[in-house]
Design a protein around this nucleic acid. Structure first.
Lengths: 234, 234
DNA sequence: ATTGAAAAATGACAAAGGTCATGTTTCAAA
DNA sequence: TTTGAAACATGACCTTTGTCATTTTTCAAT
């Protein structure tokens, strides 16, 4: 993990986040009030149903955001990385959290209190606009996923999910190994299917030579073939 | 359909929309630049893939917003009514439209040009905040639907969809007939299933006495039983 | 290195839901 | 009023996917 920055002004993620357009004075206020923290792998940032007291800004690491289905089954709705902010949805809607956030690896996070975040949003048009962009993009992603979930077979959705993981977290130094370790169950909860189906299809993908499996390490051998399998028209 | 208002200031939907917190001066600007129009049932407001030139504000009527799946199958992602704004997602993301909007009945719509809408958003913190709320609420709804799509059987999703239609459009004067006419195919495209499955399940619901069917007219006879069938924990 | 629990893998089977074929009804245009 | 296309309805069937049971592997704690 990278060293913690002393200030938001120097933060590596500053221009890579929703704060990229925030005015200097506002960044200073945020810097004064933020609280940084490290969450160990598997640790909970917040839990579905809890009241939000602010937003979290990932400085380094990886986080999953997931709903609890009515029967208790997890549905992963977002994967977050450095520069991403989370917890804003509930804050803006005035709701409680509708999802839980869990660190996928040791993760360094800054917490920005609710009133500070809201206040800056209301006085900084540039940042407010960036926030709307983030929300719009998330909404877009969610609606596309909804359509695919309704209309595409699991094989295509799994291929798409592997490519999505690649887009989000990229590769290890070797250029082919996905830079995140997810259990088969987590991948299934991302795809929206049963764990066994995911395992079976991953084996098939391996047999077809598209991927290589070594425990939780997944290598993408033939990205083009995987893309064809995902059958995306977007 | 209600008579067209002469101005945004007098519009019945003003305080029932994202403009509710907009400052008077901004409402005036919008009023000066808006263009009102009537779309006949079935008419297209905008098409997936087109470039957005502004946002649409529904004064009276009903509109469906839908994606085209990769195989050409429609997925209805939102149902809109008076007071709702549409077309903002693409505008804010700087994308082309990712969905098409079609009038479900004769609908009166005001068009607000892109630059006017963006300009007001950037100078009116109150309205910007309302816009973020709208986006957050939509995102929430979309993510819940995603989870249900991934985890719930069609029977439950259909019951939920009927209740959702009720929430959105309410009843006719009789208090039990859904105030919108949708084809079985449209209901299926809202639920995310095949038309035949929807038809079969609607027949079952009727046999169970939960609903009454008369062509496109759907009456909700036992809302509680329907709610139980939807099996919602939210 | 051992070991025990969790995760992964695999097979058998069942259930859900989609597809196709076909018949019936509706409804608007002639 | 007739009529023809589109929507609705229903049955038969089959594919996909989920569930359950069992075995194998992995991996971290001792």
């Amino acid at each position: 993990m990278h060293p913690s920055p002393s200030t938001c002004q120097q933060c590596a993620q500053r221009f890579n986040s929703v704060f990229c357009k925030a005015r200097e004075e506002h960044v200073e206020v945020i810097n004064d009030k933020k609280v940084c923290n490290i969450y160990k792998k598997g640790q909970l940032l917040f839990h579905e149903g809890a009241h939000p007291f602010g937003v979290f800004c990932i400085n380094d690491g990886k986080v999953k955001l997931s709903h609890q289905g009515d029967d208790g089954k997890e549905q992963i709705i977002r994967l977050l990385k450095a520069g991403d902010v989370l917890g804003y949805r509930a804050l803006l809607s005035g709701d409680r959290y509708s999802a839980s956030a869990v660190a996928l690896e040791d993760t360094q996070v800054c917490f920005i209190p609710k009133d500070v975040f809201i206040n800056v949003l209301q006085h900084d048009a540039g940042m407010a606009f960036e926030m709307m962009k983030v929300l719009s993009d998330e909404l877009h992603r969610s609606e596309i996923k909804l359509t695919h979930l309704a209309q595409k077979p699991i094989r295509e959705r799994l291929a798409e999910t592997l490519l999505f993981i690649k887009e989000t977290y990229g590769f290890e130094a070797d250029g082919i190994t996905l830079a995140v370790k997810l259990s088969r169950e987590e991948i299934a909860n991302l795809v929206g299917t049963a764990t066994e189906s995911t395992i079976r299809l991953l084996s098939e993908f391996k047999k077809d030579g598209m991927i290589e499996l070594d425990g939780k390490k997944i290598q993408i051998l033939k990205p083009k073939q995987l893309l064809a399998t995902a059958n995306l028209q977007d």
